[in-house]
């Protein structure tokens, strides 16, 4: 078991976002979270991400890319704490060849290798999203938490990237709005409505109609 939430509620100001949530996630599980916007998905992911941050690559909706910094350095940024300040400084002046190679491989897989040395704000929304995912890959963590990580990608690329995410990480918790993908690639789907978990089952046991209900 890697995550456990028991009777957890959460409010912003006076607005209750999560209402007595119970959720456990086992090691090796690939979990999709679905639900309408504002239903508390991001809050739920935030709570999970806080549980053992050192094992988690967390890809938030904000992407947290640094404008003015190249894609390469934006990805490199994920491991700053692992290198010394001097090495980090040198890497700014001239990319460290070893790390550059590692990052290039990831970038190739995500089809952004040609943009690696461009400043991140010159990229399209979809490309930026992939930079954020590359940053998560680069950390080589066993757990991936993603908040709509492929929402800006065309469906072909989205599937490709999602498969890569699932393959690279032992356990995944990903919020998605694409119901088909949730049912196709994951081995467990959790549906949220008004701050409560209303669905928690294997994809085989869920029909598309039930999922559509969440958005009504």
């Amino acid at each position: 078991m890697i995550f456990e939430l028991r009777d957890i509620s959460f409010s912003y100001h006076t607005k209750r976002v999560l209402d007595k949530i119970n959720l456990t996630v086992e090691r090796g599980e690939k979990l999709a979270i679905v639900g309408a916007s504002g239903v508390g998905k991001s809050t739920l992911l935030n709570l999970l991400a806080q549980q053992h941050p050192d094992d988690i690559a967390y890809c938030t909706q904000e992407r947290n890319l640094v404008t003015g910094l190249s894609c390469y350095n934006n990805i490199y940024l994920a491991k700053l704490a692992e290198f010394g300040a001097l090495q980090n400084l040198c890497n700014l002046l001239r990319p460290n060849p070893q790390e550059l190679q590692r990052i290039s491989l990831i970038a190739e897989q995500l089809q952004i290798a040609d943009k690696l040395h461009h400043s991140v704000e010159t990229l399209s929304g979809g490309q930026q999203q992939r930079v954020a995912i590359a940053r998560a890959f680069y950390q080589q963590r066993s757990i991936f938490i993603g908040d709509e990580p492929v929402s800006n990608l065309d469906s072909v690329t989205a599937r490709l990237v999602l498969k890569a995410i699932l393959k690279r990480h032992q356990s995944c918790v990903i919020a998605l709005h694409d119901r088909t993908m949730a049912l196709t690639y994951f081995d467990r789907v959790v549906g949220l409505k008004q701050g409560k978990i209303v669905i928690d089952a294997k994809p085989a046991d869920i029909s598309m109609q039930v999922l559509e209900q969440l958005y009504l």
Partner: peptide, 11 residues
């Protein structure tokens, strides 16, 4: 300091 260099300064 590294975070300062990579996150604040470029922005």
């Amino acid at each position: 300091f590294s975070y300062f260099l990579y996150v604040l300064i470029p922005q």
